[in-house]
Amino acid sequence: MQIDWTNFTPWSAALGGVAIGLAAGIMILLLGRIAGVSGIVAGLLPPAKGDVSWRVAFILGLVVSAALWRLAGAARAPVFDIGYGATILAGLLVGFGARLGGGCTSGHGVCGLSRLSPRSLAATLAFMTSGVLTVFALRHILG
């Protein structure tokens, strides 16, 4: 194993992580809801009466955050290193898998592990493993 010291950013990573944990913590304490992004989005498909505004507001907050981040001038734009066909496949897998598995990186990875849930630990180990294997296949077998 070789560490990529040039891209390793422990401080900004931990600071960002604390903000994410604070957001998830405020969400459960104020609203009694899990800050799981795939679940919050899927709850709008289709929208259920009386259960729309908080979901839309949260999603808007996510988008506005990056707009502010761009205004602050700190932003590096995200760049995909795959084509459009692979992007569509990846989106389908992410959406389908997150719903079948009942959560994604935020719901299982952040909130579930913070609750010390064995179910979320199993989910997190499963998607970390398949994510690692996928990148391994892309970069070291196919690449």
Partner: peptide
């Protein structure tokens, strides 16, 4: 099974694109 299969499928898409649902929505601002 749905938990483990679904999470594994999710991880394949995550590894392929390098984004999961939260960051993808945030990235809309770009």
């Amino acid at each position: 099974a749905p938990l483990l299969i679904g999470s594994s499928i999710f991880g394949i898409g995550w590894g392929l694109a390098g984004v999961c649902p939260g960051p993808a929505i945030v990235d809309l601002a770009f």
